[in-house]
Design a protein around this nucleic acid. Structure first.
Lengths: 207, 207
DNA sequence: ATCTTCTAGTGAATTAATTCACAAATAATA
DNA sequence: TATTATTTGTGAATTAATTCACTAGAAGAT
């Protein structure tokens, strides 16, 4: 069965909520509650879950712990995945220490920047390197994910280097769309575009 | 005519590309080119544009300058929109100085944090205030957009305050989904979830 | 013990989104 | 000038996604 991107995204969100609910000590959650948290209808949530053959209990909902465990196994979200950040400007260094990555399933194991002087000044517990060593370190440390935080003009070049180095996924924070070879998953997170979307959306609402 | 969120999002991306193309001095762009840049098919792009009644030229495509201008007017993306950032930790301060916001249509006119000592230490050209002054400043400066960069536990509270203060849109960088009153547009940007999506997506691909 | 209420699961219906197919127009070419 | 190639615009067809409508089962209430 082939899940759509929308379904995968919702399931990832669900996983996040299950994680939070587990910490709060909640035992069961209904499709209605999940729907509210994910921003979808209960029908859609149940359909999504049905693709996975998830076990729900009549009049109780889904058991938080076992459901989370199952999702984790299915999508391999339990084992920590290693990531690196390229570009150690304001945003890049903020991401280096972004606790939420560590908190759930991801580990930043290296940072890169092309400015060698900058590398020596950065104060962080994470190892930082010159970009020239990207391929070497990605290989040595089994890094699966690359997070791009360089300026627009070098984003594509870094994406190419990451692809060549063998990462499986790229999260791109630069404000240009990057293209990657088939087989590598990537997501563009364009802040400015998000603001534009919000602005356009509320202009549309008035009409 | 009611545009779907997908259409609005693609159009916002198109606007961004038109902006870049204009700066490069390109005169015309085809639906095929736009499709590649946006990550959609040329059919979808033309359909999107057809909702706007955009004027395309046979065998040339769309005229970059006039098309951008029209989109800008339609969605009011030309006038600078004022935004503020709440939460001046690593991410928040990085966003304060994120040039790309200023670069195209958005202006960060205030920062807020609840830690008053921190406020005094921050070095930036943008005015920073205690969160207690949020409503006052939003009103005084005509701020339309709020960017949430506080930790998960206070995100909803800040969202409520922003809504009460009268912002029209919220961009939420905290890793929880916030809920806002009807009539306010909001987008959640959850970094961890983006990484999860990438991870889940490439697990799915193998099958 | 029985009834009511709630919730999952799912095939069918509906709605939405995308893609196709092709006419019309026009630049480029021969 | 005639021909060819390219590109928009759009109704129709297709495909995808969501919602509905209903069954079954179990918890809780009476």
């Amino acid at each position: 069965m082939d899940l759509s991107d929308n379904t995968i995204e919702r399931i990832c969100k669900i996983f996040g909520y299950l994680h939070a609910l587990e910490k709060k000590g909640v035992d069961f959650v209904s499709s209605k509650d999940l729907a509210k948290m994910v921003g979808a209808t209960e029908y859609t949530i149940r359909k999504d879950i049905s693709f996975l053959g998830g076990p729900g209990y009549t009049r109780k909902g889904y058991e938080v712990r076992s459901f989370k465990k199952e999702l984790g196994q299915r999508f391999q979200l339990t084992e920590k995945r290693k990531a690196c950040i390229i570009g150690l400007g304001r945003l890049g260094t903020a991401l280096l220490d972004y606790e939420n990555f560590q908190e759930d399933g991801f580990e930043i194991v290296a940072g890169f920047d092309c400015n060698v002087n900058k590398i020596e000044r950065i104060r962080t517990s994470i190892d930082v390197f010159a970009v020239s060593r990207l391929a070497e370190i990605v290989d040595a440390r089994n890094i699966e994910l690359g997070i791009i935080a360089v300026p627009a003009e070098s984003a594509q070049e870094i994406a190419d280097q990451l692809a060549a180095a063998g990462v499986k996924g790229i999260l791109n924070f630069s404000p240009v769309k990057i293209s990657v070879p088939e087989g590598i998953v990537h997501v563009d997170m364009d802040f400015t575009n998000a603001l534009r979307f919000i602005a356009a959306r509320f202009v549309m609402m008035k009409k």
